[in-house]
Simulated scan of single mutants.
Amino acid sequence: MFLLNNRPGKLVGAFAIVLVAAALLFNLLMHKFFVTELGPKISCSSFFLVQSDLQTKGVMSLHINGKRQGEMGISATVRDNAGAIKYHLLRNISFEYRYEDNGYLAIQLVDVIKKASDDMPNELFNQSIFDFSVKNRRLRITTVGDGYLLWNGFSPVMMCISSQ
């Protein structure tokens, strides 16, 4: 009699285990056969120089995982015409993107993290480095040898060398 009272509990436990195993198998099969990369995987870095009333000289790294997420790290020093340091720039930008044809990425959901030592005004950053304040931002990436050309809407603006 004791075994008969315990049988429903064992059946429920076995059913739960089978259900969890089926869910894990379904998830594995979906990722293996149906979830594909949405664009290239990119990991590169570049030196840059922006010359205007101020001179901004720095390094930018770009990492795109091929599955709608990317990250950009920017570090630079901004000097005036006399060569004196005006600002330090140290920002991490994480974003999601939608891959479009011909190497275009539509950048969305941008999160800009300004580090404690970064004292560059946001307006200057948007004017001279990269304007993430606009709602729809597109970036084009084309492969050139072991590097990449990063384009704005009109022309290439930076060469990024593979860091792998």
Rank of each mutant, 00 (worst) to 15 (best):
L3P: 00
G13F: 14
F15V: 08
A23N: 06
A23E: 06
L24T: 08
L25C: 13
L25W: 13
L28Q: 10
L28E: 09
K32G: 02
F33L: 13
G39Q: 08
P40S: 15
K41G: 01
S45V: 01
F48Y: 09
Q51W: 07
S52A: 15
D53A: 12
V59W: 11
S61D: 08
S61W: 01
N65K: 05
G66D: 11
R68L: 12
M72A: 13
R79L: 14
A82T: 15
A82W: 07
A82G: 03
G83M: 08
G83A: 09
K86W: 00
H88N: 11
R91Q: 05
Y99R: 12
Y99V: 02
E100C: 05
D101M: 09
N102I: 04
N102M: 14
G103Q: 10
Y104F: 15
Y104E: 14
A106S: 14
Q108R: 14
K114I: 12
A116S: 04
D119T: 03
M120P: 00
L124R: 05
V134T: 10
N136A: 10
L139E: 10
I141V: 15
T142H: 06
L149D: 09
L150Q: 10
G153I: 05
G153T: 10
P156C: 12
I161C: 02
I161E: 14
